[in-house]
Amino acid sequence: MTMYVNGIGFRAIGRLTGVNHNTVINWVREAALKLPDAPEHSEIPTICTS
């Protein structure tokens, strides 16, 4: 997961780890499902310029 987050593609991760890129995709999908949902933001922040 660290390699993917740092911008390495699925195929490159597969070559580096010696596993099929489809397996890497499945690993990333499984990890993503375990992440909490992003919080809902109903307010738009104001921007102050001085």
Rank of each mutant, 00 (worst) to 15 (best):
V24L: 04
C48V: 06
P39A: 15
S42L: 03
I8A: 05
G14I: 01
A32L: 11
T23P: 00
A32C: 09
S42H: 15
Y4P: 00
T49Q: 02
F10Q: 13
A32D: 12
S42E: 04
N6M: 07
I25L: 15
S50K: 09
L35D: 08
A32W: 13
A12D: 01
G18F: 08
E40Q: 09
A31K: 10
M3V: 04
E43N: 11
I44S: 05
E43A: 10
T2N: 10
N20A: 08
I25M: 06
N26D: 09
I8C: 12
K34Y: 09
T46S: 07
I8S: 08
R15Q: 02
L35K: 11
T17S: 02
A38W: 08
P45S: 12
V19T: 09
C48A: 13
V24R: 07
P45W: 15
G9C: 03
K34T: 06
A32N: 14
T2Q: 13
C48H: 14
R15W: 08
H41M: 14
A38R: 10
A31H: 09
I13L: 07
V24P: 03
H21G: 06
A31G: 11
L35H: 13
I44Q: 13
A12M: 08
N6F: 14
I13D: 01
A32S: 12
G9W: 07
V19P: 01
R29H: 09
V19F: 06
I8D: 02
E30P: 07
K34M: 04
P39I: 09
Y4R: 14
I44W: 13
F10G: 02
T23E: 05
H21N: 05
S42N: 03
K34L: 12
I8Y: 10
H41N: 08
T49P: 02
P39T: 04
S42D: 02
E43D: 01
P39S: 09
R15L: 12
A32V: 13
N20G: 02
P36Y: 13
L16R: 05
G18M: 05
V5C: 04
T46D: 06
T17K: 09
A12L: 02
T23F: 01
N22S: 11
N20R: 07
A31V: 06
I25F: 14
I13Y: 08
N26Q: 15
I13M: 05
V24G: 06
I25Q: 07
N22D: 09
M3K: 15
E30N: 15
E30Y: 11
H41A: 15
N22I: 07
W27L: 10
V5A: 13
V19H: 15
I25P: 02
W27D: 04
N22V: 12
I47F: 12
N26C: 10
V5Y: 05
